[in-house]
């Protein structure tokens, strides 16, 4: 993912990772892999539970950890794409993510509220 980070930025998107590891461990991982995007710590698993991406007792010693998952949110915070790969060996490839971003409806500056409202009409109901 890091290798295509520039392309993702160029596509106008931000990249953030979440794991249940501690801040220290995530900092170490980020440093050793040279990541330009942050890995946030969901130590108490509250966020992965809220997102429904918990792999119950999937971690070492039966700890709850996140299942590998990738979401693409639009500028408004609505989920536009997700990949819940069941095989941790095959994560979503940067290519398919970039492709998905490019397919997102573009929100030009000055987009009216009316347009936004229409765009998110479907999402309001189930959230």
């Amino acid at each position: 993912m890091q290798s295509r980070f520039e392309d993702i930025r160029e596509a106008g998107a931000e990249l953030v990772a979440i794991s249940v590891d501690t801040v220290e461990r995530n900092a170490k991982v980020g440093e050793s892999l040279g990541l330009d995007f942050p890995i946030l710590s969901d130590v108490d698993t509250a966020v992965i539970k809220a997102w429904g991406v918990v792999d119950n007792e999937g971690g070492i010693g039966g700890a709850d950890i996140a299942r590998p998952a990738t979401f693409i949110l639009d500028a408004e915070g609505v989920i536009r794409w997700r990949n819940l790969t069941s095989n941790w060996r095959i994560r979503s490839s940067p290519e398919e993510i970039i492709e998905a971003i490019e397919k997102l409806p573009v929100l030009p500056h000055g987009t009216s509220d009316l347009q936004l409202g229409r765009m998110h009409h479907n999402s309001e109901g189930d959230s």
Binding site: D55, A66, P68, I72, L104
Partner: peptide, 8 residues
């Protein structure tokens, strides 16, 4: 747009 990745 934000790409949010959950790692194990």
């Amino acid at each position: 747009p934000l790409i949010l990745i959950f790692y194990r």
